[in-house]
């Protein structure tokens, strides 16, 4: 069997694919986090919780409601966006003018509350969500076997990331959004309903996180803690990519996912810390992140 640096090629490809899948989740989450920080000035600690909630809502739709995977793909982001909009209107709106630390504290509190509720409702033992029949199975690519579901995750996540990027960089709505990130008071003076824009952006960011949760549901044991582990990594991704850079979030998310995958192959002991090592190096050399502006 062919090898690269002593690792069989299929194993290497397998880990790279896994890295790409994780990278897709990092990209979806850090994109939303970055958008929200840009316009709302809030470090949304609850972002991982929305991802977790997305996965559990998919589970809930299936059992007891009997609505399958494709229903979840459509309905869960809408439900999460609704929840996000409610949270923005009732809670976050009151703290925009305060220091960042208040936003972090409030969203941390939300994390604890939502997680607690999920624990009460679903328990702490891991739940399983089956891969939908329409996406199960493998394709033989010759050099490796590709699980169809993983391919779908990468395509769907990247598609949504690119769609978000295109809207922000190429449309009039996106221009208003970029301007609102720079100087919301002036954009308001031009007659744009900035508070509504803020609400919609928060809703969209949360919907992206919940969508990532639905995509991830068939790939893992669902426990209320899954939001924790991913949000810490995603904060690392955002810091490395640079707060506020859309393309930076996407590229960095994918790149770090791949790096994590490679580390699992060659030096597994470091696989859970490699992102933070990179983060420290980047902070030393470019404190505003790889794609961040001064």
């Amino acid at each position: 069997m062919p090898e690269i640096f002593g690792v069989p090629v299929p194993v290497l490809y397998g880990q790279l694919l896994l890295g790409l899948v994780n990278g897709s989740f990092y990209a979806l989450l850090s994109l939303g986090l970055s958008l929200i920080f840009g316009l709302l000035n809030i470090v949304n600690f609850a972002h991982g919780t929305m991802y977790m909630l997305g996965a559990f809502l998919a589970y809930f739709l299936l059992q007891p409601l009997g609505l399958g995977y494709w229903w979840a793909v459509v309905l869960v982001p809408i439900m999460a966006a609704g929840l996000g909009i409610g949270i923005e209107r009732t809670i976050l709106r009151r703290i925009y003018k305060l220091d960042h630390i208040y936003g972090l504290l409030v969203t941390f509190a939300l994390t604890m509350i939502i997680e607690g509720l999920v624990r009460v409702w679903f328990g702490v033992s891991g739940l399983r969500y089956a891969v939908p029949d329409s996406l199960s199975g493998m394709v033989d690519l010759g050099f490796m076997k590709l699980p169809i579901y993983r391919a779908w995750v990468i395509v769907a996540a990247l598609g949504l990331c690119l769609l978000t990027w295109a809207v922000i960089e190429r449309t009039r709505l996106g221009a208003i959004l970029r301007a609102g990130t720079e100087n919301p008071a002036l954009v308001k003076a031009f007659g744009v309903n900035v508070p509504l824009l803020v609400t919609l952006v928060f809703g969209w960011g949360v919907a992206l996180a919940a969508f990532a949760g639905v995509l991830a549901a068939p790939l893992m044991q669902l426990t209320p803690q899954i939001g924790h582990s991913i949000i810490i990594t995603v904060f690392g991704v955002v810091v490395i990519g640079g707060m506020g850079s859309i393309l930076g979030s996407i590229v960095t998310g994918l790149g770090l996912g791949l790096l994590e995958g490679l580390t699992k192959v060659y030096y597994p002991e470091a696989s859970s810390t490699v992102i933070f090592v990179v983060m420290i190096l980047v902070l030393l050399v470019r404190p505003h992140g790889l794609f961040g502006k001064q």
Partner: peptide, 14 residues
């Protein structure tokens, strides 16, 4: 706005 082109700046106010 730094992140907008000249034309985007011009067309920004609705």
């Amino acid at each position: 706005f730094a992140s907008l082109s000249c034309e985007e700046n011009l067309m920004l106010p609705p």
